[in-house]
C-alpha cells in the first residue's frame, strides 16, 4: 500500500510539473490519472517507501548528482577524442566485475551510471556480477578493473539505496 501511495505522489508531482499550472482542473485530472497509474503499476515500485523518508539518503543523492555529472562529461570528452583520433585507439572486450550492492534498484543505478562513464557499457547483471563492454581494456587484474569501472559510484549508491 505504501508503495502505491509513494507512486501516486510521484506521478501527481510529475503531472503537475508537465502542466506547470495549479488550475484546479489540472490538479483534479492529475490526481485521477496518478491514482489509476498507481493502482495498475504501483506494486512494481522497486523501492522500500520507508527509505524515501530518510533525509540522509536524500543528502547523499544531492552529493551524487554533481559527481555523476562530472563523470558523464569526462565520458563524453573521452569518447569524442576517440572518435576524432585517426587510429581510433580501440581495444574492446567484455569483462565481468563483482558488486557488493544488495538491492535491485541500487544495481540498476550502478549499471546506468557505468553506462554513462568513459568507454563502459553494461551488458548484463546476474546476481552480483556485472558484464561490461569496455572500449579500451587497460588492466587484466579483476580487482583493478572493478575499481576503474565502478569509480566513485558504488560508495555513493550504497549510502543512497542500500
Amino acid at each position: 500500500m505504501a508503495r502505491r501511495f509513494a507512486y501516486f505522489i510521484a506521478g501527481w508531482i510529475i503531472w503537475l510539473l508537465l502542466g506547470w499550472t495549479l488550475n484546479y482542473q489540472e490538479v483534479v485530472a492529475g490526481a485521477a490519472v496518478a491514482l489509476i497509474a498507481a493502482g495498475m503499476f504501483g506494486g512494481y515500485l522497486p523501492l522500500q517507501p520507508r527509505k524515501l523518508l530518510n533525509p540522509v539518503r536524500w543528502f547523499w543523492l544531492l552529493v551524487y548528482i554533481p559527481v555523476f555529472a562530472w563523470q558523464c562529461l569526462k565520458a563524453n570528452i573521452d569518447v569524442a577524442l576517440r572518435v576524432l583520433s585517426p587510429g581510433l585507439n580501440l581495444k574492446p572486450g567484455i569483462v565481468k566485475i563483482k558488486t557488493n550492492l544488495k538491492s535491485d534498484i541500487a544495481k540498476v543505478f550502478l549499471a546506468n551510471s557505468i553506462t554513462m562513464t568513459p568507454g563502459t557499457l553494461t551488458v548484463e547483471i546476474k546476481d552480483d556480477t556485472l558484464y561490461i563492454h569496455w572500449i579500451e581494456i587497460r588492466s587484466d587484474d579483476p580487482e583493478e578493473m572493478a575499481k576503474m569501472i565502478k569509480g566513485p559510484f558504488e560508495f555513493f549508491l550504497k549510502k543512497i539505496f542500500d
Binding site: 558523464c72 562529461l73 565520458a75 563524453n76 569518447v79 569524442a80 572518435v83 580501440l90 574492446p92 553506462t115 554513462m116 568507454g119 557499457l121 563492454h133 572500449i135
Partner: peptide, 12 residues
Amino acid sequence: NRMQAATKCVTL
C-alpha cells in the same frame, strides 16, 4: 563500439 558512441555522446 557504435553503441558506446550513440549512448554517451547523444545523451549528453
